[in-house]
Design a protein around this nucleic acid. Structure first.
Lengths: 345, 345
DNA sequence: TTGTAAGCGTTATCAA
DNA sequence: TTGATAACGCTTACAA
């Protein structure tokens, strides 16, 4: 036996050994209901003995389609997307579909390139993040010969299916929570200014403005990647530039955690001197001391539902509603508890 | 135009339009140095005009190989692996190779299944995590007709190439740091008991035992997925069962952060009443208050170097040394500072 | 430098 | 239920 380059075992090897035609083996694999039970059994025996595994490339070429689900997210290292991916993989792993994932790095051009590449492989479906694709990307996707789910955001004009929540409404609710808790000198910390972050910022501004509480000097942003460190930095900046700030909305929980640490470092007590509200309700937020108020979003569920909708649609089962709003929930915790009342986690 | 199922544009469409043979187009794509500059230019014009994209399945089938790099990690949601993946993708995105990633969920059987699937696609290379594969997986990998890099750990008998660090030595160094800082009633918190975690635990036990400081009652573990929450839970357990503990080594920084929060919640001051040492030196560790002592590991670098070694090897450039030890560094911070000296971040 | 022919491993299609 | 044949889009090998 030439171990180095053992000859590939093909479907016709199996056919020969089983004493049937090549097509019968092919059918036994993909449409077993069209092959007699006895033949199938015979074939499976040979397949096991020979260790045959179908060649997916040949299959894709001949069939003109694949079982690949292309997933596009703007970042891997961002925990939010890692959780969505986990949901997606959880469902995919129980199916016959294979997830293929790519990272657009928050670049619309990169996204366009990747969409082209994916579509060229005739995927069974695609999951793409957000609704802010370039015009060209959108055009390609609308014409695409596969089912598509947009995740992470909501909009009026889905390519096909969509599942997410309103970043505007969620940030608005968080801002209202601060206002209703009696805070009035509101700050905002934001980083990585992608479209969804911008929506949250806009919601904060609109809501604060409506309440007559908008102070642009208390809005500290950075285009850099969001992180705990940036949270600390931005919070430091805020505390120096606008020390009268009595509550700060952080556009995500990493920033909020960094802000909390920075306040502790400076001896600024939370929430007595400044309240902190995060966004996303990551695991650590409930556990921080003080526990961080945040806006809960359903990231893993978004992944599982997106994948479920997609697989159902591929198998011909149309979703009742192609657009799913997963909603959000403001989770009040100690970091925005006013002095006069008790708080809960 | 039938927009729904527009005819696929193939290499021969391009050839016809450009007035050359199909093979010339094929060469212009994969071996441009063997085609005249003028012809290439002509072909590229047509490719752009037609929007031609090569079909990777046909290519793989005909060539008997792909430009796919298979990457196997045990978890996506674990930040440590997310950072390694980021490094891998950073290098891959600048190359002609395509990363295809799969999640073994810490299951050796799952890993075996996935290795089989990947190898069947004739990948150009593979990156696999750790050195604790099943015997069968190891056998398959050793016979594989592609280059392989093992990451995340170190061992004597690499399949091919290897890059990681010694979990045993790293945890030993952390334990010694605690001992040398004057702590003597040492606790350990561990979760997700995979092979690398086990090595760290063993190092802690051996080192504590050697110093005559091993107290099994202070070792609190959980088979559950590691998380900040588990860190809080385990710390709570430790504080109740062994309130005399004066320092605790946490097998990763998530546990350490959870432990820190739990101490704060209980009014146990860190490091005065109990010192905390983490592992991995995640971003938040330097920023926590008090800043967390941790063992720095080079996760993103591991990803980039693994990918670089792999691509070089695929292109025929053998690495000077097939086994790379990335090392580690104990980063002393406030959480293990003894009362008598000042601390730094 | 360019072209011709054969074939990669599978599925679609039609026929038996 | 099973089989023969022609694709699928590309590359290898060889020839010109």
């Amino acid at each position: 036996m030439d171990l180095g380059k053992r000859k590939t075992i093909t479907i016709s090897d199996v056919a020969r050994e089983a004493g049937v035609s090549l097509m019968t083996v092919s059918r036994a694999l993909s449409q077993p209901e069209r092959v007699s039970a006895k033949t199938i059994e015979k074939i499976n025996l040979v397949i096991d003995r020979l260790g045959f595994v179908p060649n997916p490339n040949a299959r894709a070429l001949a069939a003109g389609r694949t079982n690949v689900i292309g997933v596009l997210v703007p970042s891997i290292s961002n925990n939010v997307f890692a959780e969505v991916l986990r949901g997606i993989y959880d469902v995919a792993d129980g199916s016959n579909f294979q997830v293929q994932f790519a990272n657009t790095r928050y670049s619309p051009d990169e996204e366009e390139r990747i969409v082209r590449t994916f579509l060229n492989q005739k995927p069974a479906g695609m999951i793409v993040s957000g609704i802010n694709q370039t015009g060209r990307t959108a055009a390609i996707l609308r014409e695409a010969n596969c089912r598509i789910v947009q995740i992470m955001d909501l909009g009026d004009d889905p390519f096909d299916m969509m599942i997410g929540f309103s970043h505007y409404e969620a940030a608005k609710a968080a801002t209202l929570h601060l206002i209703e808790s009696g805070f009035s000198r509101l700050g905002l910390l934001a980083a990585r200014l992608d479209p969804r972050t911008e929506k949250r910022i806009a919601a904060f501004k609109d809501t604060a403005r409506s309440a007559g509480l908008l102070d642009e000097a208390k809005i500290i942003t950075s285009p850099r990647t969001t992180s705990v460190r940036i949270g600390s930095m931005l919070a430091g900046e805020l505390l120096e530039k606008a020390p009268d700030t009595d509550a700060v909305l952080c556009i995500n929980d990493d920033l909020a955690l960094g802000a909390l640490f920075e306040c502790q470092r400076r001896g600024v007590s939370v929430p007595e001197q400044i309240a902190i509200c995060g966004f996303n309700d990551m695991e650590f937020s409930a556990l921080a001391h003080p526990a961080l108020t945040s806006v809960r979003t359903y990231r893993e569920k978004m992944g599982t539902m997106a994948m479920q909708m997609l697989l159902s649609a591929i198998e011909g089962q149309e979703p009742e509603n192609p657009v799913v709003d997963l909603g959000f929930e403001v989770i009040e915790r100690e970091s925005t508890g006013s002095a006069r009342r008790s708080s809960s986690a």
